[in-house]
Design a protein around this nucleic acid. Sequence first.
DNA 1: AGGCTTTACTAATACGCATTAGGGAGCGTT
DNA 2: AACGCTCCCTAATGCGTATTAGTAAAGCCT
Lengths: 318, 318
Amino acid sequence: MTGVSQATVSLVLNGRADAEVRIAPETRERVLKAIRSTGYVADPIARRLASRHNRILGVFTYESVFPAGLGDFYHPFLVGIEECAERIGCDLLLLTSAPVVDGRRRIFHQDNRLRLADGCVLLGRSLDPAELERLLGEGLPFVSVGRRDDAGGPVPYVGADYPGATAAQVRKARELGHERMVYVGQGAGPESHADRFKGFAAEAADGVHIREVDLDVIIRTGATCVFVEEYADGVALVRQAEDNGLRVPEDLSFVALGDPTRPAVTDREFTGYRIPRREMGWQAVELLSEILEGRPKGTQRLLPCEPVPGVTLAVARG
Amino acid sequence: MTGVSQATVSLVLNGRADAEVRIAPETRERVLKAIRSTGYVADPIARRLASRHNRILGVFTYESVFPAGLGDFYHPFLVGIEECAERIGCDLLLLTSAPVVDGRRRIFHQDNRLRLADGCVLLGRSLDPAELERLLGEGLPFVSVGRRDDAGGPVPYVGADYPGATAAQVRKARELGHERMVYVGQGAGPESHADRFKGFAAEAADGVHIREVDLDVIIRTGATCVFVEEYADGVALVRQAEDNGLRVPEDLSFVALGDPTRPAVTDREFTGYRIPRREMGWQAVELLSEILEGRPKGTQRLLPCEPVPGVTLAVARG
DNA sequence: AGGCTTTACTAATACGCATTAGGGAGCGTT
DNA sequence: AACGCTCCCTAATGCGTATTAGTAAAGCCT
């Protein structure tokens, strides 16, 4: 149309006006006009093949992205991810095609399309260390939402400061006179669980750790304050306690360590803290973007959790 | 590693064993072993560049995909979309980078990446006819979630049968003795609004159409049953009515034509119908997939809405 | 006029795969 | 021995872009 070469169009299209390359303003205008009139858009595939990046960020979740049974626990993360992606002009590729093997999705499989994206964001309670290690090994840029242990090297992440937030709750309970405290939950396995327990153990040296969600066991410890790893477990325990004639929080206090990951029906707001999910999603994308541009300001970030006063923690009974 | 050519690897990788091409079983095994041991995966970008499809479906929404203010109206659509995509082994590309111009996102812009996907699903209350026309013109495979008017040609869609569902509600009201009925809402603009009104007008020939959400105007018509286009408007009107001493539904009945698109706080379930959002999302992807394979079974589908009995429609007052 | 520099562009190539025409090797047949 | 045929496999090419070496043209200087 304009009598110039494909190379020239490419140069104009990408606004290359470096010292190395120059295009006469008149030519540039002519090409731009043709581009505008035809609505020509460079093929993103070919562009990526040639230049190694395409402003697409992969989003890999170990569960469904749009969860049904998870009570939308992941939703706020995705809101943050989308907002930041939109802000920096990136599209999101949801890796929904990853097949489920042994009850969990696999990043690496026969036909994975991870490499289609410039980098990717990983979401899920627990990420397979072997897959993380391979990601690191292949040098594929990625950021985990949620802290992860090293996997043959430091894993870039944006996590929540569970230890700090949990410890703060323990301190608060102690200030209210609680002396005997119980941690109910795994306290291990996924980093988010381990971190909660770490915070608890650090602040409540004599605290008790119970793995089963069992009111009798809890009561037998003589504890006056219960820290539940899972919100939903707290809801169940409170119901049990009240069925047994205990008043909450007068007789027994409860602290929920984070937001519900399973749907939990209750009209009572638990004392505890809120995970900055949206912010985590946002910053994960931001960090990924920095990594892609080669100058990340620290590849591991912990964000503070916002305390929730709630109504399930009171002065310890005399 | 195996001493064979790149072409052979490609053939083995893609399981090409047609009559045209043959690979000795022994060679095939050798290559497969190398593939397995290295975890080699074909570059999806190059693959797409060469073969013209990559099992990626674009998802374009005129609003944010993960909505904040929309009360999650779109969420169920996305659940369906994701489920079907996962089922057929496709990844989803969320076109979040589309810039907002004049208050709405634009499909076509400087750097759009639509063509990266094999096809795409369009979501939003109203799609720009000009953009639809261009999509049709460029022959880019797509499916709209929600019925759309022709735009220089028939638009492939999976929509909700608003006319049928609305007409059914009108009939139900008439059976309960209602004679004077009012439709509150635009009744025009987006197809979903026009279709609701179409169903209303078809069944209630003498029905009144009011555009403002104004209780006084409604009462002045002498109507005993109000059909609200927007759930949230219904909620507001019911509150007003009760503040004015009217009982709902004894004195005034309400029917909500579909689910809330704006957040609406009420403990009362409105009589009306439910939009099969998840199913629409699912079938949109299914239809898109059929189109891509070249044998769609009809490119325009209307799905029935499920009636909701609710508590806001009663026998007309004597 | 000849040589040097700057300007403005193009030819050629790489990116990693899928595709296909075609070729070499081995074997049977005449 | 010459020919034909079947099997396997490879060389070559194209996909649409970004990049870079290189070149023609024009201008400048001596």
